[in-house]
Amino acid sequence: MPRYLLHIEYLDETIIDEDGAEFASLDLARSEAAVALRELFAAAILVEGKPVPRSISICNETTERLARINLETILPAGIKTAW
């Protein structure tokens, strides 16, 4: 199975995923990134001062970006981001 790296992008820094994870397809990696981004967002809004993630980039093992999941695209319609 292919290995994908999920880099978490904040406003002023990027957390590099050096280990990655194996997924059967890019679509499954995208789904996992969307779940992770929602969880990171939920954790950030519960703690004052905790940075809010902006996106997760999905890269292959050669660090080529294959996709990006943006926070605004995965939040429910009633939630607007002010970050």
Rank of each mutant, 00 (worst) to 15 (best):
N60E: 08
L75H: 08
L6T: 00
F41Y: 15
A44M: 02
S55A: 14
E18F: 08
I69N: 03
R38N: 09
P2W: 01
I74D: 00
A21P: 06
E39P: 00
M1F: 08
T62D: 12
E39V: 00
G20A: 02
Y4K: 00
V47Y: 13
R30H: 06
I15N: 09
R65M: 08
F23E: 07
T14E: 08
E13A: 07
A67K: 08
V52C: 12
E22W: 11
V47A: 13
G49W: 02
E18H: 12
V52M: 14
A42E: 15
D17V: 08
E32G: 08
G20Q: 00
I45G: 03
I56H: 04
I56N: 04
P2C: 04
E39D: 03
R30F: 04
A43E: 15
P53F: 07
L37V: 02
A34Y: 01
L11W: 08
S31Q: 13
K80I: 09
P51Q: 13
S57C: 05
E61H: 04
P51Y: 14
N70R: 13
L6E: 00
P53D: 10
L11V: 11
Y4E: 00
G49A: 02
V47W: 12
A44P: 01
E9Q: 09
L28D: 07
R54P: 03
I45Y: 14
L37N: 00
R65E: 11
I16D: 05
N60Y: 06
E39H: 02
L66F: 01
I74R: 00
T73E: 15
G49S: 02
A33C: 07
R30L: 07
G20K: 01
V35M: 11
D12S: 14
A82N: 12
I79Y: 11
A36R: 15
T63Q: 12
T63S: 10
Y4A: 00
I8C: 06
I79G: 06
I15H: 11
E64I: 12
H7M: 05
E18G: 09
L28A: 06
N70Y: 10
I69H: 05
L71I: 09
K50V: 09
F23W: 11
I69R: 03
A44W: 00
V52G: 07
E9H: 09
V52I: 15
H7R: 04
A77V: 13
L66N: 01
E13R: 06
A67T: 09
L6H: 01
F41W: 15
T73C: 07
M1S: 08
E72G: 11
L11C: 10
T14S: 07
S57T: 09
L66I: 02
D19G: 06
G49D: 02
K50T: 12
L5E: 00
R3V: 13
G20E: 00
G20W: 01
R3A: 05
I45V: 15
Y10G: 00
